[in-house]
Nucleic acid binder design. Structure first.
Lengths: 123, 123
DNA sequence: TTAACTGTATTATATTCATAGTACGGTTGC
DNA sequence: GCAACCGTACTATGAATATAATACAGTTAA
């Protein structure tokens, strides 16, 4: 069962998008694997304190991406292969890193300083 | 006059927030300084291709933060001192770095790998 | 079999973000 | 003085996000 233990829905972006990202980061980390069972819409919404429709939207979009298989009445499962997993990992990584680098460069921070900051804040 | 040359309004977050961040990053970089003149609401909205109300919202929030002084009929100017500038820089830096580190840790990336990625993507 | 759970769908409401259009009075340079 | 700006304010509209309350049919385990 995919875990949402360390999920915190408070970063400004839509909750349904945060749910999607939580799952994709799990996939990128190898924590979420093919055929893993997803919490039901009702269970997850109650766990996160959000509306079932919000979870349904996240799951629907993931299904449209081909990462989840859902069938009426049955539980939902991850539908992954090596290609999908690799492509998710690569895209998330590049996105996050490029975003942070753009920010730091706009703040006129040097690469050396950036590396030092990361070293400092990493725990 | 504060420049919006390299501004691109397409990162998912609200445009008014992107305007605020653009200015704050300029402050953090030392490019935007005390008493610098801001483009008028109408001029900037037309430059960015957004509604004047969107720019007004960004400016209003910056004024409420004490970073801008506006008076009806007159142009708007930055209102900065060393304390404000330092606090903006520190807060932006910490935010960006912590966000990126959280992402990379969720993806199970090691600190060593993280530093290598930054080194690779920095240009 | 049947009760409990599942996915799915619908309607209604509220808030935020952004747009469009208009208006009013203050400031500034010619 | 006056035209051309400026900040500020308001109403109306629409899309996106999220909530609430139902409803219905498929699946599954006791």
């Amino acid at each position: 069962m995919i875990s949402f233990d360390n999920f915190t829905a408070v970063d400004g972006s839509p909750v349904y998008m945060q749910i999607i990202m939580h799952i994709k980061r799990g996939v990128a980390a190898g924590i979420v694997q093919n055929e893993d069972e997803l919490p039901s819409r009702r269970v997850l919404s109650s766990l996160l304190g959000v509306n079932p429709n919000t979870v349904q939207k996240a799951y629907r979009l993931l299904e449209e991406e081909g990462l989840i298989s859902s069938h009426s009445g049955a539980k939902s499962f991850m539908q992954l292969d090596e290609d999908k997993t690799n492509s998710i990992k690569a895209s998330l990584l590049e996105n996050d890193i490029r975003g942070m680098i753009r920010s730091m460069q706009q703040m006129d921070i040097s690469k050396k300083e950036a590396l030092e900051f990361i070293d400092l804040y990493w725990r």
